[in-house]
Design a protein around this nucleic acid. Structure first.
Lengths: 145, 145
DNA sequence: ATAAATGCAAAGACTTTGCAGGTAC
DNA sequence: GTACCTGCAAAGTCTTTGCATTTAT
């Protein structure tokens, strides 16, 4: 699905639910769904402040929360400062995180989904979500020593 | 390795490093390394308080930190209240977490280590650690509705 | 008109830290 | 004796919440 289509579809769905499309909300949603990286709440806030100077951090948090509930973004918790969000690929997928510089890489691991499902079946769990995070040193940081 | 051996070996190593074996530290280390579940800092604190009433939460935090650095425990971050610790199996392994009642199950997934290593190699990362966490509803909670 | 969203500041939850006093060695 | 450890309280971080005001519809 194209980004613009996805954005439009989401806004339509929000409207149907009686949610209001305020300028702040629109700006946040667009910024998150289009952001190519893994921004923090702070980063999103700073990004839209120039165009929407009245936007508060609290509103960004609330809107991110909304996007989370709607399954439009994936929340990444790396135990560092501030969670990160992936608005492009909301489905769980592995990540590699540099513990030196914070670089985050999206990965693909075919068979993971099936393994997770099998493990859950074996113990009688009903899977809601999962995460595979790999922590280490990225090539650039390795070179720097 | 037997628990008692492991404890003794760890204490020996600490001594060699000039670390002091205070009563509080001993109590905390023993409690964590022997605990069969996935206790929080709070739980460890409450557990040793009766026998060592002067122990502070801060000291538990500091000692847990020490155990972490020494690779004697695995830190589990599930984004809920308080991290949990596994003092029995310090090596990374998958976990299944019930989002209703908090139950945590240790799992085994052969091939995960190799997959992680391969992914890291492909992108040039040097792996420090990894985690596979599965969130969902446990059988007991499913039954309760 | 009115239910919902915003912004602000305060509160929360967990963890870390600074420091004075205590203690293992 | 002394370097390390403890306990206390304060500070720090990120996030959530309460509430008066504004606003999309």
């Amino acid at each position: 699905m194209e980004n613009s289509d996805r954005l439009a579809a989401f806004l339509e769905r929000m409207k149907r639910k009686g949610k209001r499309l305020t300028p702040q909300r629109l700006a946040i949603v667009q910024a998150v769904l289009v952001h190519g990286g893994h921004p923090t709440v702070e980063q999103i806030h700073r990004q839209i402040l120039p165009a929407y100077p009245t936007t508060s951090l609290a509103t960004v948090y609330k809107t991110i929360s909304l996007l989370k509930e709607e399954g439009e973004i994936l929340e990444l918790e790396f135990g560092e400062r501030g969670n990160r969000y992936d608005g492009i690929r909301p489905k769980p997928h592995p990540h590699m995180v540099c513990t030196r510089c914070g670089t985050i890489l999206d990965l693909e691991l075919s068979g993971l989904e099936a393994d997770v499902a099998r493990l859950a079946r074996e113990v009688g769990f009903e899977v809601e979500s999962h995460r595979l995070d790999i922590f280490g040193i990225c090539p650039a940081c390795k070179q720097k020593g």
